[in-house]
Design a protein around this nucleic acid. Structure first.
Length: 447
RNA sequence: CGGAGUGUGGCGCAGCCUGGUAGCGCACCUGCUUCGGGAGCAGGGGGCCGGAGGUUCGAAUCCUCUCACUCCGACCA
């Protein structure tokens, strides 16, 4: 993408309303625009990141055997009366009426609707297990939205719902979600720690939250420092292997890690003092097993092997997709701007032409751009007629992982410069070598 | 929902107390000079001052109502 043909409305100054770093940088980097309290438009750069996060979630859910669907944002009130939540849910739920005075609501979650879909089409244990998920916009009319997309009223969520014949099968689904979530976060460059949580309005017995450590987190967290070193890495996971999936979950939940809601001071005190950590975390996902809480009142039953009608065991499992954009920035930035992890970066590499209009520089940049494109790498080429300082400042702000700097001085020696946004380290090399190197560095990234 | 604030051009702000018809920086447009870390000079365009009433010869400024947004708290992915 050539910057002169793109839409990247960056701000030099800090908008007054932005209190935390992710909100500031998202506004300054032209990623979002607020349209009402807690409601945002996603501008091209922000939308790219959002779509990349979405793509990772889709891929990892697919690997776990979970099936995508898409449910509407508006739901009929009657469905929620069946579960009793129409009245139980407070003013957080946005209620509205259509022209025929029919009561609707903008979905804050989808347990009722997915259960309705299930009961209409599934009636035998032979069709289980089944896990459906969707990524859709939701609305919760928070009293006080703040921190940009970290706590908006409208937000994009991945929600997964599993349907299983019994508790044991449902817990395997729970475990699949935990592992697939850990893989998703890891791919996004995050360390997200599963912590036993309190169940809240969704209900249920077993539940874990996933917390990204950050000073601006909304929850106080207590943990054994060793949990931060756990990595899935490239290990192969067979999601049908109950024992293996359970073992991975055990590995990641064995060490102490709790939010303030479930904190156990005695257990915490048993950890060696050097490893005992108190910090803050951003919640980026939560998984629940809630047995037959919805299937019983809503009549989601299947016939089992013995011919008996039994309510299915369910769970629901969410990832805050739009919130993750903010969480990643909170976890990865410096004083000059965002530092995107490669997998979620809007572009993997930027090309800075230091002297636009200079024949050699223009030609070298165009050549680099085309050579990268030929290798499937889309660069953001800053071809504006701006001074070097302005171009560097923009690149630093928007945080692309790699930058190729092209100027007459270097070109005279046949060199361009490749710079890492994360480390700031630069290396001079020929344009051809830069293309090869960038291709190698970005090889693992799709797009 | 309690408490505290703020609404003046795309962004950041001044002007309001002490009414006289709007200003600064950034951004934008034109020209010249610059050109490896947010350039300089000159010229230029853009705002019914959140909205509605009221007071007044006259309201961004004073009064009333209203809407929106922000911050602190309680709540929440």
């Amino acid at each position: 993408m050539r910057l002169t043909r793109y839409f990247l409305p960056v701000l030099k100054e800090n908008p007054a309303e932005a209190q935390i770093v992710s909100h500031r940088y998202m506004l300054r980097a032209g990623m979002i625009r607020q349209q009402a309290a807690g409601i945002y438009s996603w501008l091209p750069l922000g939308y790219r990141v959002l779509r990349r996060i979405e793509a990772i979630v889709h891929e990892e859910q697919g690997r776990a055997g979970h099936i995508p669907v898409l449910m509407p944002t508006l739901q009929p009130a009657d469905l929620w009366r069946e579960s009793g939540r129409y009245d139980a849910y407070g003013p957080e739920m946005l209620r509205l009426k259509d022209r025929h005075e029919r009561e609707l609501l903008y979905g804050p979650t989808n347990e009722e609707m997915i259960t309705d879909i299930f009961r209409a089409h599934v009636s035998s244990y032979r069709d289980l297990p089944l896990t459906l998920y969707h990524i859709q916009w939701k609305f919760r009319d928070e009293m006080r939205p703040r921190f940009g997309v970290m706590r908006g009223r409208e937000f994009l969520m991945k929600d997964g719902y599993n349907f299983d014949i019994d508790r044991e099968a449902a817990l395997h689904a729970y475990n699949r979600h935990m592992v697939s979530y850990l893989r998703s976060y890891e791919r996004m460059g995050l360390t997200a720690i599963p912590m036993r949580a309190a169940s809240g309005p969704i209900g249920g017995d077993d539940t874990h939250e996933f917390l990204v450590l950050a000073q601006t987190g909304e929850s106080e967290v207590f943990y054994d420092d060793r949990v931060t070193a756990l990595k899935l890495g490239a290990r192969a996971i067979d999601y049908d292997d109950r024992a293996q999936v359970a073992a991975v979950c055990a590995e990641f939940t064995a060490l102490y890690a709790r939010t303030d809601e479930t904190h156990d001071p005695a257990a915490f005190a048993a950890i060696p003092e050097a490893r005992r950590k108190v910090g803050r975390g951003i919640e980026v996902g939560q998984i629940f097993y809630f047995a037959t809480k919805y299937s019983e009142p809503m009549g989601a039953v299947v016939v089992n092997e013995k011919g008996e009608r039994v309510p299915v065991h369910m769970g629901s499992h969410g990832i805050g997709v739009s919130r993750l954009v903010g969480a990643i920035i909170e976890a990865s930035h410096d004083e000059r701007g965002i530092v995107w992890p490669l997998e979620v970066a809007p572009f993997p590499v930027g090309i800075v032409n230091l002297k636009q209009g200079d024949g050699a520089a223009d030609a070298a940049c165009a050549g680099l751009y085309a050579a990268l494109a030929a290798r499937g790498i889309e660069a953001l080429y800053d071809d504006r007629d701006e001074r070097a300082g302005a171009k560097f400042a923009t690149m630093d702000l928007i945080g692309l992982p790699w930058r190729i700097t092209v100027g007459p001085r270097g070109l005279a020696a046949g060199k361009v410069e490749l710079t890492s946004r994360r480390t700031g380290e630069s290396e001079e090399m020929s344009p051809e070598a830069a293309v090869t190197r960038v291709a190698a560095l970005c090889g693992g990234r799709a797009g």
